[in-house]
């Protein structure tokens, strides 16, 4: 464990807290992509299958349960609970996620670490997480303006994997035979997708005023 990875996990937890507060207190899922939340639920449920046999630390196992529970709760609330379910707009939030899941599944089959079924599923979840934010970014693009809390949610989510990139660099230089090309590649793609958002987020927050984030 190093500070980058710890801060990355804290940023990830923060993103869950912000989103859960927004949809439970704000009673609205407007501006939130259910598609992206469904992809995250698939990512965590598939990646953390090893909960049952790979006990590397209490910290890991605890957060795996937390991430599966939170992502499932978010999908449940937006999909089934009133009044949030009425604030979700299927016409706007209509990114064809099958075009994300399909290629990631093929990639997981072909490029993985150990050729066992779990490793294929694990690689699938890594690739899927890299592109899972796309429906959310497309939704924000369509709306042009980003609600304040949503912008903090997306920023925390982008920061989490950005901090993980630093964690991988740190581990590469401090641990011998540390090699994780799959997560390095996917994590770089994932963080890259946020660059444009971060630019607009920074511009809007720079003045100290919480001017809304505008996407062109």
């Amino acid at each position: 464990m190093n500070i980058f990875r710890f801060l990355g996990d804290m940023s990830h937890i923060l993103s869950f807290v912000i989103l859960l507060l927004k949809i439970t207190q704000g009673k609205s899922a407007a501006g939130i992509s259910l598609r992206t939340q469904e992809l995250y639920m698939i990512v965590f449920c598939s990646r953390y299958l090893d909960l049952f046999w790979n006990f590397s630390s209490l910290y890991n196992s605890f957060l795996k349960v937390v991430f599966i529970a939170c992502s499932s709760a978010i999908v449940y609330i937006i999909r089934f609970k009133s009044p949030q379910k009425d604030t979700w707009n299927p016409e706007l939030d209509n990114f064809p996620i099958q075009y994300l899941i399909g290629p990631c599944a093929v990639a997981g089959l072909l490029i993985n670490q150990d050729w066992t079924p779990f490793e294929m599923i694990w690689a699938f979840s890594i690739y899927l997480e890299a592109v899972a934010i796309l429906p959310q970014l497309f939704l924000l693009q369509k709306q042009g303006e980003v609600e304040n809390l949503t912008s903090h949610y997306v920023a925390a989510l982008g920061a989490y994997r950005g901090l993980y990139l630093m964690n991988w660099v740190y581990r590469y230089f401090t641990e011998d035979d540390y090699l994780q090309r799959i997560v390095w590649f996917a994590g770089t793609v994932q963080t890259g997708l946020y660059i444009d958002f971060f630019y607009h987020y920074y511009q809007s927050k720079r003045g100290g005023l919480s001017r809304p984030v505008k996407l062109p």
């Binding site: 990875r5 996990d9 090893d50 006990f55 957060l63 795996k64 991430f67 694990w122 993980y164």
Partner: peptide
């Protein structure tokens, strides 16, 4: 001693 799994990250 369980094999230290390559997946020690979240």
């Amino acid at each position: 001693q369980s094999k230290p799994s390559a997946h020690d990250e979240l």
